Simulated assay, not measured.
Amino acid sequence: MALLDIRHLHVSFRTYRGILEALHDVSLTVEAGETVGIVGESGCGKSVTAQSVMKLLPRGAAVYDQGEVYWRGQNILPWSERDMNRLRGRDMAMVFQDPMTALNPVLTIGDQLEEGLRLHRNLQKEEVQREALDLLQAVGITSPEKRLRQYPHELSGGMRQRCLIAMALSCSPRLLFADEPTTALDVTTEAQVLALIQSLQQKMGMAVVLISHNLGIVAQMCRRIYVMYAGCVVETGTAEDIFYRPAHPYTQGLLASLPDPDHKDKPMQGIAGQAPDLFHMPSGCRFFRRCPQAMRICMTAMPLQYETGPGHTAACWLLSPERRRFCETKHTD
Rank of each mutant, 00 (worst) to 15 (best):
G157N: 10
Q202A: 14
Q66M: 04
R223D: 13
Q252R: 14
Y229S: 04
M204D: 10
F287E: 05
V209D: 03
E41P: 06
R82E: 15
R286D: 08
A275V: 15
E322W: 13
G110N: 10
V193A: 01
L123Y: 09
T332I: 09
S12D: 08
L28Y: 00
H8L: 02
F287M: 07
T15E: 06
I242V: 12
K46C: 01
S42W: 02
G116N: 07
R223F: 13
L185H: 09
E328Y: 09
T329A: 12
R223Y: 12
A2K: 08
P259N: 06
G40Y: 00
V234A: 10
E180F: 06
S283M: 10
P292L: 13
K330R: 12
V233D: 05
H312E: 01
A138M: 11
L164R: 00
E190W: 03
T108L: 03
D65S: 01
R72T: 00
V39N: 03
V128E: 09
A166Q: 03
L123F: 08
A93H: 07
C298T: 11
Q137D: 12
K125V: 13
L200F: 09
I76V: 14
E21I: 10
S27E: 08
F288Y: 15
Q124Y: 07
V234Q: 02
A50N: 05
Q201G: 03
Q269D: 10
I197L: 15
C222D: 03
C327R: 15
Q137E: 14
G45M: 03
V193M: 03
N214V: 04
Q129V: 01
P173S: 14
G116V: 04
S42N: 07
L107K: 14
S52Q: 01
R82W: 06
N85H: 12
H10W: 14
T29C: 06
F287C: 06
Y64I: 02
Q137S: 14
L135Y: 07
C163H: 02
L4H: 02
M221V: 14
V53A: 11
P249L: 02
L119V: 15
A275C: 13
S143H: 15
S80A: 06
Q198R: 14
L164A: 08
P152A: 05
G157L: 00
Y244S: 14
G237E: 03
L136R: 09
D260T: 03
P321T: 08
M204H: 14
Q97V: 12
M228V: 08
K203P: 08
T236W: 00
R323S: 05
L175A: 05
F243I: 07
A2L: 05
S172K: 15
Q112P: 03
G311M: 05
K46Y: 04
Q269H: 12
I76Q: 01
P152Q: 09
V128K: 13
V193K: 02
R130H: 15
V39T: 11
R7C: 03
F177D: 01
S12F: 01
W79H: 07
Q192V: 07
Q97N: 10
Q150I: 08
Y229L: 06
P99T: 10
L200T: 09
M84F: 07
L133Q: 11
V11Q: 03
S27C: 08
S80D: 06
V218M: 12
L215I: 06
M84E: 06
M228L: 09
S143P: 05
K46E: 09
Q74A: 12
G140R: 02
